[in-house]
């Protein structure tokens, strides 16, 4: 790790101001950023810690929408998002207890790791990302792995999840990292079904629209029996070929529908 300055503001405004410094980076739970800094792969001049900002924390439900402060840890979501059980379950399955008690939903969505769980939940739920300057519809938010619609210095403050009628997340773990080799989030709402896939694509989280159409017509595992996810653009590595990941997408989607 290289030397860096560290500031811990108490408000979003102070944090936004502090991020104006050259090569400043926001730090939330640090579950990705700190390891990359330790490996000297990332060298911010200033870390702006967001975890001292109380307004970024908390889980609340109103009018069928679950709002989660960006600085809320996975462990808190697992414990307090009972209004959206599939989301609470997903949060409870991220990493290990140490990760869940440090990592935050805002940090995960801002980082947009192609194998992270939260992007699947957000995309699958049709969530809205709230920042210090605007609200971003989730379909406009993810822009390829490790890339989002966030501007320089823009901070996620909360994420709003419309609570679906039914939902489920199925994660098939990569054997070493235990990140999602493939993860599928299925949500059934009055407007139809959304199927979001993480872990599989070179472009990060994506929606499997053919399955969405089939499941919107008939929310049953058999509805997608005749479909197959395309292997084009899927990740191939030590842990699985694109064809294997494509197969998992279908299997996990069926299992999510069954379990929802």
């Amino acid at each position: 790790m290289y030397n860096f300055e560290f500031v811990k503001p108490a408000t979003v405004d102070e944090a936004v101001a502090a991020l104006q410094a050259e090569d400043a980076q926001p730090l939330s739970g640090g579950q990705t950023l700190i390891p990359t800094m330790k490996q000297r792969l990332n060298a911010p001049s200033t870390l702006v810690s967001l975890i001292g900002i109380d307004s970024l924390k908390g889980v609340s439900e109103a009018g069928g929408v679950l709002t989660i402060g960006a600085g809320t840890t996975h462990a808190t979501v697992a414990a307090e998002a009972g209004a959206y059980p599939a989301l609470a379950a997903l949060a409870g399955g991220i990493g290990d207890p140490a990760v869940r008690n440090r990592g935050t939903i805002g940090g995960s969505l801002a980082n947009n790791d192609p194998a992270a769980c939260y992007p699947a939940a957000a995309l699958g739920s049709g969530a809205t990302v709230v920042t210090n300057t605007r609200e971003i519809a989730i379909d406009d938010y993810f822009q390829g792995m490790f890339t989002t619609a966030l501007e320089e210095g823009e901070i996620i403050t909360a994420v709003k999840f419309p609570i679906p009628e039914k939902a489920n997340y199925q994660k098939f773990e990569q054997p070493a990292s235990r990140f999602a080799l493939v993860g599928v989030f299925v949500a059934k709402t009055a407007d139809g079904v959304r199927v979001a896939v993480t872990g599989a694509s070179e472009e990060g989280v994506f929606r499997w629209t053919e399955a969405e159409a089939a499941l919107s017509a008939n929310f049953a595992p058999g509805a997608i029996e005749g479909l197959s996810a395309s292997a084009d653009g899927l990740i191939g590595d030590l842990h699985g070929t694109p064809a294997y990941r494509a197969s998992l997408i279908k299997t996990l989607t069926k299992r999510a529908v069954t379990a929802a």
Binding site: F172, P175, L181, H239, G240, T241, Y244, S247
Partner: peptide, 9 residues
Amino acid sequence: PLSPSRVWE
């Protein structure tokens, strides 16, 4: 190792 992908293949 008999990883899931190898067994599946």
